[in-house]
Nucleic acid binder design. Structure first.
Lengths: 222, 222
DNA sequence: GAAGATATTTAGCCTTAACGAATAATATTA
DNA sequence: TAATATTATTCGTTAAGGCTAAATATCTTC
């Protein structure tokens, strides 16, 4: 087997990758919140990643992945999403639960298993929440915007549920119940700047989502 | 997720379980060889297992699992063998390779994934090498003996390839090439005490195995 | 039963990963 | 600009796991 850097290092790389994907500048305080550990721990661990040339620190203290770190992070994300598909499609584990189980499993996939699993699943292009699996380009239509950017009466189609929302089991469960899933269509019945909420309707049910959550859900007009 | 004891602790429990299953008394030196680490490391780690009431030390320094440790070890072995079946049957990874990949994967299965995987595989009763998955009784016929205990001209059927042989890729590859697999039939063409070897024949090919290896392969007369 | 071999345990040192508390460096904003 | 947050870093600790080398125990074997 390969010299697989520690699980903790892998989690940091993934966190950095995910935060970057969210568009936010990756500062150590953000990692500290994302990974739920103290700033001093983050500092120590990031120093090791730096030593191992997996990250680089910009003058403004922003942490970014080196080519090497990026490769590793992408490989990890690929494994994570592949495992999510496996748990969802093959084992029938519910949509809102797959993320947490995949998070535990992903670190134990050897390259061969990853390859064979991808083959078995017929090379899925995204995870069950709609986020593309690295290597699949142009999957997200370029007109995709955050849900909060649409207006009342817009009819929209959900494209993906942002990664950062996957951490909350309850939220995912709610989204699932209300059919806020990749591919489904909804009507925006209300959008209120005062309360900063948006209301989606699908068939007979509706959900109210605050802007900050809605902004992490990608959708297109249709 | 659960407070899953460390991976290292899990590996020790498995090692103790496996050694015990081999019939050998489990002393710290044996663990040290099995796990390829220094005696002092074994001592320190076993002390932690002792503290956590997962093992007990007999007056003659033999290490044995407590009820609690045994439960954990069995659960681990169950996961290991389940994963082996998955890698072999579902992903099509070759028979001689599954063990090492399963060894990396097994620590990442949550109870839910374990349950769903067992269901998906239709509750297999043994691993691809013939060793029963805990919970399946009477799978090994009681007349099963080590290959070295049979005589020239005996016709035998392989029941299982002992766990301790799974560590060697090359040996497994050879056994596979020579069809020494659970369920296959062979004729013992030679057995020599002087060289301590036994020769098996299957169709047009034959293999010579030293007693110590043959003794770890279970078979029945037929 | 003493000598020699083999096992076990201690002791000392290292790395990773985590913590809290204190301090230094940056931003913010009054 | 000075005062106040917010961030980042340093320091001192703890625990798990790993190592080597040395000291004890425990067998064997003569």
């Amino acid at each position: 087997m390969k010299e697989r850097g520690s699980i903790v290092a892998e989690e940091y790389l993934q966190a950095i990758y995910s935060l970057q994907a969210c568009g936010e500048p990756v500062k150590s305080i953000a990692l500290s919140k994302w990974l739920k550990c103290s700033p001093s721990t983050v500092h120590a661990t990031v120093s090791r990643l730096l030593r191992d040339k997996l990250v680089r620190i910009k003058k403004n203290k922003e942490i970014c992945l080196t080519d090497q770190g990026f490769q590793k992070a992408e490989s990890l994300m690929r494994r994570h999403r592949l495992v999510e598909q496996f748990l969802y499609r093959t084992l029938g584990i519910s949509w809102h639960e797959v993320h947490q189980h995949a998070h535990v499993m992903e670190h134990g996939l050897t390259p061969l298993v990853e390859e064979k699993l991808a083959e078995f699943l017929e090379f899925p292009s995204s995870c069950p929440h709609g986020t593309p699996i690295p290597g699949n380009k142009n999957l997200i239509p370029k007109e995709t915007k955050g849900l909060n950017e649409f207006q009342s009466d817009d009819r929209i189609q959900i494209i993906f549920i942002g990664e950062s929302l996957e951490e909350s089991l309850d939220l995912l469960k709610l989204l699932q119940e209300k059919s806020v899933l990749p591919g489904t269509h909804h009507l925006i019945t209300e959008k209120t700047d005062i309360t900063k909420t948006i209301v989606l309707q699908h068939e007979n049910s509706s959900v109210t989502l605050p802007y900050d959550i809605a902004g992490k859900i990608g959708a297109i007009k249709c």
